[in-house]
Structures are given as C-alpha cells and as structure tokens.
Design a protein around this nucleic acid. Structure first.
Lengths: 343, 343
DNA sequence: CTGTTAGCGCTTTCAT
DNA sequence: ATGAAAGCGCTAACAG
C-alpha cells in the first residue's frame, strides 16, 4: 500500500514522523534499529513507514555518517562480453550481495583513458573499493584515490606504480605447461599466437612459451611467433599464413581464448585440424564438443573474482598489511587437439 | 600532485576555497562551469583543485540539486555469466557511458525475492532508472518505485501488473519459424525441450511450437514435449530418453541456449548427430564449428540492450507517452543440424 | 562578478 | 525513553 501523494517526491523521515506523530529522530532510531524506543511508538512508526512506503535516502545517510561507508564497490573489467570477464563479475557480485554491497560495473576495452575516467566517476561516488583489471601500464593516477581511503585490488593483472593487492593467474607456468605438453607429443616446431603485447598477461604467457622451449633445449624461431593478435580474425589469418610456409609449425600454442577460436577456424577451413596440434590458454564453452576436442590450459575466473572480492572487503574492513599478490593456478585439460603427434 | 594531508579525508569545496582565497560558492561555479567567474579567480581555483586533487562529492550534490538526478541506473539481469545477459549488459553500458551515466549491475537467478531486494537496494540509492529482466510473475512491488519517479523498462520479458515499457524478442514467431524449418525438411515427429515454465519466454516459445505444428496440420504429441528443463544436464537426459522410445522423434526444437548445448552433447554421445535434426533458440559461440553446425533461431541481445537503454533514457528525460512494447526479431541461421532429413 | 544564507535528508551530539 | 540542534558537502536563491 502507498499513500504517497503524487509529484514524484519520496517520503522522508519527517513525513513518517508527522504521520506517526513522533519526532523524526525517533523514526531514525527505528529505521536503524538503534533501540531505546518504546514498543507502542515503534509500532506506530513502522506502520507509517509501511503506509508511506518510506525508504531511507542512502545518499543523505552517507553524507552525515562518521564511517563514510557507501556499501558500494566499482568493478572495472576488460569487456563483460568476454566470458572470462563475465565469470569474474558473477563471482564478485555473489561476494558483494552476500555483504549487502552493491556493484558498479563497466568495461574498459583496454583503454587507459577509460580506466582513468571510470575510476574517477566511481571515486566521485565514494565507492568503498575498486576492483580493477588494469588497462594500461600505469596506475599511478589512482594514488590519490588510495590516499582518500578507497581500497583497490587489481584483478587478472598486477598494477604498475601503485601499491595494491592483485590476484593473477600463473600465466608463465601455465603457458610453459601447455608448450611442454605439445613438446611431449613430439613437436619441435611450435608456433606462438598471442594477444596484444600491451597486455601484461600476453607478455607473461609469451615468456612461459620461451622458457619452456629453452628448458627443452629447443630454439625460439621468430618466424613462428605472432604477437599483437587482436581478435579471432587476425588469428585465423596468422595460422593460415604460418601453415603456408615452406617449413610450417606442427603445433600451435594460442595464448588467449578468442585467438584459440580463430586458430580452430583456420585449421578447420584448411582441413588440418586432425593433423596440426593445438593447445589454447583459457577454456571456453563447447571446447569439448569440437572435433578434435580443444586441449586447453584452463584459468579459474570464478576463483579469481571470489579471491579478489575477499581481499577488497578485507582492506575495506581495515586490513593494512603489505600489498600481496595472490596466484591462481591453471589446469591442463586434455581433449585431443593437444595430443596430436607431428607427421 | 597531491598536498592532501593524511587521514583519508577528501578535500571539500571549502578546502579548495581556502587555498584559492575565494568564497566556496566561487569554487562551486568553477566546478560546475556556471560561468560568471573572472579569469584570474578561475585560474586560482583550478590550481587549488589540481593541487588538492579535489573531486566533487556526488552524493552531496544530488541531495541539494533540484532535478534530483543521480546519473545512475540499475541493471537487473538473469545471470551475467550467461552470454545472452552479458551481451545485454555490454550494450547497456555503452549507451550509459555515452551519457555519463554509471551502471549498477546484479544477477537475479530467476529469484523473485532477489528481484525485490535488489530493486529496493538500487531504489534507495535513487537510481534514475531500472532496467529489469523480470524474475517472477508479479512486478507490482515496483509501483511505488515508479511513482517515486524512477523510470523502469523491462528487458527480454514483459512486466506483469506494472505499466512500463518492454523490449522483447519475437519469441512465438521465432520458435514457429524454427519448427516450420524442421517440418520443411520432412519431419513430422518434432520434440520440444524448453526452459522452466515460470519463465515467460519459455512459455511463448512453446506456444510458437504448438502453433507451427497446428498450422502444418500436425498434432502435438505430449510424449515429445519436455518442459521445465533447467540446465544442460537435464536436457541431455531428456534427449537420451526420448530417443530410446519405440517411436522416437526425428527432430528436436530446443528453446534455450543451454538446453541446446545439452541436446548436442546427448546426440554426440549417442552418435546420432548426423541422423537426428536439431534447431536451437538463441545463438551461441562456436555453434558454427560443431559438426554438424547447429542451426539456430538467433536473438539479438545487443539490439535488445541498446533499445532498452534508449527507452529508459527517454523516460528519464521526461517522455510520458503510454507504455510500449518493442519487438526485436529473430534470424534463422542454417548451419546443417536443422537441415537433416528424417530417415 | 562575487559572496551570503538557507537547506537537501540524514546521523551525531547533546539536552531533557 | 524522547527530542532539539547542528552540520555532512553541496546547490539554489538572493543579495551586493
């Protein structure tokens, strides 16, 4: 039921007080369960709250409160349309809802300018914390935010020039494991296809590729390395070009989910999917139903989101220990494409 | 640069005013580009703003402003981990960012209690508008929110008991088209596998299935209809059971993306994927790379999100025309599985 | 062009 | 147990 008069004005504590015939401080006591209100008065106040459908104005409350908490956090992802980001967001939402915290969310598309603009927009709204997938090589612009008391945790990549916690995948180790898996099947000419080198994880996965090859006594052939692959289409083209060489690779290590998809498309079109081996970094839906199934080094975005949110809330709750880096391990999932032997 | 003293207190307009030796109203004028400030004063103020790294407190501004706008909206999805929801969110984000509006986001998991709780939480934060994928059969709890001036637009499903705009897929038409496509390949025994019947779109797609069969002069065999399929695993089991019948279906129409995935898994396991036809509702990544490719009735979540956000912003900007229902058409994409003829 | 005053809706502090 | 007054940081309305 609502007796609110038209005009779009929300009822305030004063309206409730007038209706219940009490002072508006008494309403505040009831709304905040402060106690010290006699049962009959409390009943009257609760009745008036119901009848007017009163809801406390969170903005006004925050303004006056001593702790200055807004019970809100900001989540800055790469792109929520990518399943990896979406899984992170879902995990963060669950942790936040659990604590009565609301989540602002935005996609940055790897654009440092958007990182600055959106962090600023969320900061101006006094979020208690910021969960950030860094979009550039310099997060020092957030130093003032940190000093103002906003907790910050970086997700999937570490921050640069900013002393904050981060939660990251074991990119080098995982990539190296994937490459060694291909070598174990007998491959010596293993190509690398990676995402933009502006992205730290792409660089780390490349390092893992190099290290694995060196550890195996194999040399890195620059002709088999294609970096800065920005989407599935480019990956498709790169695979096609590499397989057209006189001395083509017998296996591919693709360092990002969309790159892997592009590689699968190319192998299919060339009819080489059962002849050329493939291991991808980051799992994706239906990878098991393709033929051959796509062997991947799987990440755990749900764990990443959950751990990052946990760290953030700990900081918000006053944890002042030194910044830490939490590592989330990968899992090699064998499905067929990575177990193909060279000709 | 930041000269802010430690303690986590953000500088206010008064701090800026003191540093620039002007009245704090002058600071307000500069911050809001109101004009009417002499260049030398403005310079001093801007310098102080920079030095203190001042940012206006959005909460305080909203409290005092006459228009009461918060430049924020709430987005209540089914589950952001589902690619359909994620695509809607991305489209909404883009429209919002474009207008300088921030977005709160949450997943409801089809739970009406969460719909109420989260709508309330966002309402208490005075969002200008709410974009909602309804989770139950009754949205009347939002009437007070609407009266208080919050714009509301429903996404993917219409609201019940609430006069608001909605943006929905042509579910009946699309489903009927998918079923007719199977019939055109010669099928007479077409099974239906649908999502939970509490979900309006699942009911509409079933109606489309029935209508198509009737229009073709075919009868609906209840033994071939399985509703309330809640995930891919259940879909897998249902397909397996139906194909084990003495008089099995020769084709399947699966009315949701995860249901389709489950059906593909079952057909694969049974080795029947090239013998039994399949058309799914809602497209998904890699559907084209499966063998056979999965024929789908594709929705357009990006268009849905964009149109819904557009309607919402129009309402926020004062549009008071009668509630409208916007339809977004589907597209049949032939990839092989839907073109298989019966034995 | 610049400044003063009031007050948004609420919590805090202090009185009764 | 209840209430009155002050004031969070800002904008609106009104001076000079």
């Amino acid at each position: 039921m609502s007796l609110r008069e038209p005009g779009g004005r929300r009822p305030t504590m004063r309206d409730v007080a007038a209706r219940a015939q009490v002072s508006f401080k008494t309403v505040s006591r009831v709304v905040n369960d402060e106690g010290g209100v006699s049962p009959p008065l409390e009943r009257r106040v609760r009745k008036a709250i119901d009848e007017l459908d009163f809801r406390p104005n969170v903005g006004a409350r925050i303004l006056r409160r001593s702790d200055r908490r807004t019970a809100s956090i900001g989540l800055l992802l790469e792109d929520v349309a990518n399943p990896f980001s979406a899984a992170v967001q879902r995990a963060v939402e669950d942790e936040a809802e659990h604590r009565g915290v609301v989540v602002y969310s935005a996609s940055l598309d790897e654009d440092p300018a958007r990182e600055r603009a959106l962090a600023k927009a969320f900061g101006a709204r006094n979020v208690d914390g910021l969960l950030l997938v860094p979009a550039g090589d310099d997060q020092s612009h957030l130093a003032a935010e940190l000093r103002a008391g906003t907790a910050i945790v970086c997700v999937d990549r570490e921050a640069n020039n900013l002393p904050v916690d981060s939660v990251v995948t074991t990119n080098e180790i995982g990539a190296a494991e994937g490459v060694r898996h291909l070598a174990a099947a007998g491959h010596r000419r293993i190509a690398f296809l990676g995402d933009r080198t502006t992205i730290a994880t792409a660089r780390q996965r490349y390092v893992g590729y190099e290290e694995a090859l060196r550890g195996l006594g194999l040399s890195v052939d620059p002709a088999l390395v294609v970096r800065d692959v920005r989407d599935a289409g480019v990956a498709d083209g790169a695979v096609t070009a590499l397989l057209g060489r006189p001395d083509p690779p017998t296996a591919f290590f693709t360092a990002q989910n969309l790159v892997t998809v592009g590689a699968v498309r190319a192998l299919r079109r060339l009819g080489r999917e059962h002849a050329v081996a493939l291991v991808g970094f980051d799992d994706f839906l239906l990878a098991d139903l393709l033929r051959p199934g796509v062997t991947v080094v799987a990440q755990d975005p749900t764990a990443i989101g959950r751990i990052a949110a946990g760290l953030l809330f700990a900081r918000i709750d006053g944890d002042t220990s030194p910044p830490q880096r939490r590592l989330v391990p990968t899992t090699l999932i064998r499905r067929g494409s990575g177990e193909i032997a060279p000709d």
